[in-house]
Computed example of a mutant assay.
Amino acid sequence: MSKISNYRQLKITALLLAGALFAPLLAADTGTEVGKSPWGPEDERGRLNLMTRESQFRILSRISSGKVYDLSVEYYIGMPGVHIAGDPPYRIWMTHTPRGNQIADPMDMGEAMNEHISYSGSAISMYTHSGTHIDALNHFGLNGKIWNGFSADQYQGDRGWTAAGAESIPPIVARGVMIDIATAKNLPQLPDNYRITESDLKEALKQQQMTLEEGDVVLVRTGRMQNYDNAAVYQENYPGLTLGAAKFLAEDAEAMIIGADNIAPEAFPSEVEGNYIPVHTYLLAQQGVPILEVVNMEALARDKVYEFAFIGGSLKLRGADAGPMRPIAIPVD
């Protein structure tokens, strides 16, 4: 499932000629094969194998304060999402209310007990790619296969994938780096449909006096999160990475996870002919790099915190292609 919330733009081919913000020409899709893991034929974690006890201890030992930044968003009815593509929006409803329990007495507790004990319960339903979440490696593939050659014919059933699903994602403890593109360009947020290039990433890192290291969780800030409470604005025409920028982070910088503050980390319409979502297929299916989406970096940007201990655990949803996550960032010295 694509996270393209601006599907209608795919029909407006004139955007491809709209100038510097858009790719002037469509490149041919040469990435037709999924990646094979250097960690063996059974590997379902991809780049997450770069995380070790040593790397975790190394970043935790550098924590310099007790200040904690919450990188997640709230879930509520009307929140941004990709239900525009047919996926269900977030819903919450009460399954028990104090007054309802008095009237229905569903557990046969009796009137006196139900008057004494006020019981509330609720249930939710949502698409797994709602709110702050991590894409598992089975989310996108190529030609019927996902990362490491697992095929849908063999590994996908009625209850989801039996390989490379959300349940295979371990708790994440790693060095985190925010690349604040919006601030680097002296903008509150990037323009609609802005395509972030490798040069943009390098310039922002230079301004921040930061370098990337193998195994980093790299989070790219566009400033789009400022519109989160206005779903129509937040999820339309958002800026994102070019394929070249994604390749720089994955291959040159050797990032473990790549994320952004919008609904998808890549710009649309696609710059690659024959592939409508090239950054997703490149990162997930070819490089084994999980993707973080809808990450709230506004407080980090406000305080100019560019390096931190990233800590997050996603829900272990067996067979699912994403897991909701509540990550935190703790500054390091």
Rank of each mutant, 00 (worst) to 15 (best):
Asp158Tyr: 01
Glu251His: 05
Ala182Tyr: 05
Leu205Trp: 03
Thr132Cys: 14
Tyr194Asn: 09
Arg221Ile: 01
Thr162Leu: 00
Gly141Tyr: 05
Ala166Ser: 07
Asp180Thr: 03
Leu219Asp: 02
Val233Met: 02
Ala250Met: 14
Val233Arg: 08
Phe248Lys: 00
Trp147Cys: 05
Gly141Arg: 06
Gln207Gly: 02
Ile117Trp: 14
Tyr234Lys: 04
Phe140Ser: 10
Met210Asp: 07
Glu167Phe: 06
Ala184Arg: 01
Gly165His: 04
Gly121Tyr: 08
Glu251Lys: 02
Gly176Tyr: 15
Arg175Tyr: 02
Tyr194His: 14
Tyr194Thr: 01
Gly121Asp: 08
Pro188Tyr: 00
Gly144His: 12
Arg159Lys: 03
Glu198Tyr: 09
Ser118Tyr: 12
Leu201Gln: 09
Gly160Cys: 03
Ile146Met: 06
Glu213Met: 08
Gln207Asn: 06
Phe140Met: 11
Asp135Ile: 00
His116Ala: 02
Ser199Thr: 06
Leu142Gly: 01
Ile117Asn: 04
Arg195Ser: 12
Ile169Glu: 00
Gln189Lys: 07
Ile172Ala: 09
Asp158Lys: 07
Ser168Trp: 11
Leu190Ala: 12
Ala253Arg: 01
His139Lys: 15
Gln154Asn: 12
Ala231Glu: 15
Ala250Trp: 09
Ala152Gln: 07
Asn148Cys: 00
Ser120Ile: 05
Gly259Cys: 10
Ala255Leu: 00
Leu190Pro: 02
Val173Thr: 07
Asp216Pro: 08
Tyr119Trp: 10
Thr162Lys: 13
Ser122Pro: 03
Ala255Val: 04
Ser120Met: 13
Pro239Glu: 05
Gly215Ala: 00
Leu137Ser: 07
Leu137Asn: 13
Pro191Val: 04
Ile181Thr: 07
Ala260Thr: 14
Asp229Pro: 00
Thr183Arg: 13
Ser168Val: 01
Met178Gly: 07
Ile146Glu: 04
Leu219Met: 14
Asp135Gln: 05
Ser122Phe: 14
Ala166Tyr: 15
Ala204Phe: 04
Ala182Lys: 10
Gly157Lys: 00
Arg159Phe: 10
Thr128Ile: 04
Glu251Gly: 06
Gly160Met: 07
Leu243Glu: 01
Arg224Leu: 15
Glu203Asp: 06
Thr162Glu: 06
Trp147Phe: 05
Asn138Ile: 06
Ala246Glu: 00
Thr183Ser: 15
Val218Arg: 05
Glu198Val: 04
Leu201Pro: 11
Gly141Met: 00
Met256Leu: 11
Thr132Val: 10
Gly176Gln: 15
Gly223Glu: 01
Asp192Pro: 12
Met126Ile: 07
Met210Phe: 03
Gln208Leu: 07
Gln156Ser: 03
Ala204Arg: 06
Thr211Asp: 11
Ala253Phe: 02
Val217Ile: 08
Ala174Thr: 15
His116Ile: 01
Gly131Cys: 15
Gln207Asp: 00
Ala255Tyr: 02
Asp229Val: 13
Ala232Leu: 00
Ala174Arg: 15
Ala166Met: 13
Ala164Ser: 12
Gly121Ala: 13
Thr222Asp: 15
Tyr228Glu: 14
Gly259Val: 06
